[in-house]
Design a protein around this nucleic acid. Structure first.
Lengths: 371, 371
DNA sequence: TTGATCTCTGACTACGTAGACAACATTCTT
DNA sequence: AAGAATGTTGTCTACGTAGTCAGAGATCAA
């Protein structure tokens, strides 16, 4: 209740944001009591609490989280390392992560890794750590090809496996990409295709490798020949490039494409070459972008439930931050994928000739979740 | 050089990150001198500087930006308020903003506004201010319909106009959406279409209103009749819904769609109805999403240069933060748009009948930037 | 030689919050 | 009614950095 503050500049324009001491002075209590009220601590008389809250209101006081962070050593902020791309997957994941982060009371700082970035992921992580984050999310594990492992002394959440990552607790979330690749390929094989071609994502991405592995496994299990892999960079343009090659090969009847955007490029290349989808060539994509259902033909694809990944992963990350178990609690089983069958996949031409009636693939039909 | 520190727990696991005082002790200097070295201040002997740097190295010391922020009152962090969607525009802008932010030495915190968010944009802004940001970016100005204006006492960068926003300095960037809407519409009119239909974006978005205004202006200037406006929500699904209506109307020969995703839905609806693009109906989209060039037919559209918007806007925002001019420096002219003509637009059927030879629109042709 | 100036360094302090602890008031036990 | 338990509030301090100011040593001018 000491009011004997040194003479302060009363006249001049004081734009400084009010602090808890200002509130305290106005309410006639100590700064500590203001702190207590704001933190909902017990042992504050109702009358005092009201007085403080009124002062808070009057001054438009807001807690200074920077000061709280300095004091507590924790910022309640999560750092996200994302690739500097606006690809559907990463973008959607980012949005989902922000939602999940905020629902836990944390906030989100984003840093991109750009292709020609000095430091790459490690540099991005450094930047975040210097900013002060309590945990880190690596949204797109990629293999940067450098020998030195990435070492982080903070809890880390990785979407999909990330070999070469060393961190205190490493949490992993995301679906089982290998199984997804298998599912896509098996669907095509089950339609009667002799084998399935694959337009892969960039192999620096572990997610792309997983899908490719799944494709390989499915082919091997079916005893199907493994055609050469075409590698794209997730963009429609790269799918188009790959499509030019595939269109020229009459053996190709089925293609599993590592994402929907490349599928669009592929479909364009096939259309230009006069090869019909799905009459001559079947396509399965990956992601289920919003427009997948509205392409011509609507695309059979595998959706990824980024919201679920983000919510699950972030909840565990925050828990690890607030109550470090140290002992890595057992990772939950990866979420399973489902296949949305639309109209870009059909029985191969040869089979159809034998089996008679070629059904019209143009019939508008609602998408059918499998599994 | 006081070494008489109180007895500290030497044996136990001390995981605490080293501070400048630890560096100072190791280097045998004062904490202040460490600070001087790290800030590149003059008046430090080379020999001392080296000693400090070696100590920094040895301890793996990193500056604590939280403490610096508390001390300086500035966090060197920009807050981004984004809508909780993974739409192409916002996502791309986000990536561009992060890049721009980091290049200025700042970092980026992201908060989403979700549809059913309590507080909406105001709530998101509050969250950011409490986190401590030096400036705010509003990436998608929308009209929340509440009477109370949004009041922010920090520098704000808005992408496109944002009526109802009150802030110290308000900076604006982004192209002239009205002009863009005009350009798209004029292109269709110049091909000979009697009038142009419009599938608009959600009218809560000021950007959507601008495009609609541009469309209106172009029609009025040409003395063309103004058909009823169809309003979508940016998604392919909403474009499809609108497309069902348009497909049923034989008068429709040209449509300006407020973004590419809705164009995809529209094209699907037309395809299902057996109406050909561009032979019967011409379409102009907006955004130039990566797949626009690979649709069937490749889409005529208006690209937005988000990188330029972000770089320009952020540079000015940071300058305003670091050297407040107060006096709003004159806003630069909005960047101009260009139209990328592909194969979704053509001469209307009636005109073609009169003018003879219907050229094949299927000819693969590289996109042609105009203007 | 005596200031005067410049170079270099350290002590003290503020920034805003919350933890540790102390002090005093009130209520409950026996 | 004395002592214990509990409720309520305040003082002091740390968190890590950098600004202010003082002081010591070195160099320079007259």
């Amino acid at each position: 209740m000491a009011d004997a503050t040194p003479p302060q500049p009363t006249g001049a324009a004081r734009t400084r944001r009010p602090g808890s001491t200002d509130v305290a002075r106005l309410a006639g209590v100590s700064q500590k009591t203001v702190s207590r009220v704001l933190n909902g601590e017990p042992y504050v008389k109702d009358e005092v609490r009201d007085r403080v809250l009124r002062a808070v209101e009057e001054l438009g006081y807001r807690r200074n989280n920077v000061a709280r962070a300095l004091n507590s050593g924790r910022t309640r902020r999560i750092g996200l390392v994302s690739l500097g791309t606006a690809l559907y997957g990463p973008s959607t994941l980012l949005v989902a992560l922000e939602r999940a982060t905020r629902s836990t009371g944390y906030s989100l700082s984003v840093v991109n890794t750009i292709e020609d970035d000095p430091g790459g992921v490690a540099g991005a992580v450094d930047h975040l750590i210097e900013q002060g984050v309590d945990g880190i999310v690596l949204s797109e594990p990629i293999d940067e090809g450098d020998d030195t492992p990435l070492k982080i002394d903070l809890p880390v959440l990785s979407f999909g496996r990330f070999p070469g990552l060393q961190a205190e607790p490493i949490l992993t979330t995301g679906g089982d990409g290998v199984a997804a690749g298998r599912t896509a390929t098996e669907h095509l094989l089950s339609l009667g295709h002799r084998t399935v071609w694959h337009i892969a994502g960039p192999q620096r991405w572990w997610a792309a490798r997983d899908r490719l592995d799944g494709w390989r496994q499915a082919l091997a299990a079916a005893g199907a020949a493994e055609p050469p892999v075409l590698e794209g960079d997730w963009t429609p343009a790269s799918g188009y490039q790959a499509g030019r090659k595939l269109a020229a090969d009459p053996d190709v009847t089925a293609v599993f494409v590592a994402n929907d955007d490349m599928s669009i490029g592929l479909m364009r290349a096939l259309t230009e070459a006069g090869r019909s989808v799905p009459d001559e060539i079947s396509i399965v994509g990956f992601d289920d972008i919003p427009s997948a259902e509205y392409l011509s033909p609507p695309l059979t694809t595998i959706p990824q439930d980024f919201d679920a990944f983000a919510a699950d992963g972030l909840a565990r990350l925050v828990q690890e931050i607030e109550a470090p178990t140290g002992a890595h609690s057992p990772e939950p089983d990866p979420l399973s994928f489902r296949l949305v069958v639309r109209q870009s996949t059909a029985i191969p031409p040869s089979t159809r000739r034998r089996s008679g009636a070629p059904r019209s693939p143009r019939t508008p039909k609602k998408s059918t979740p499998t599994r």
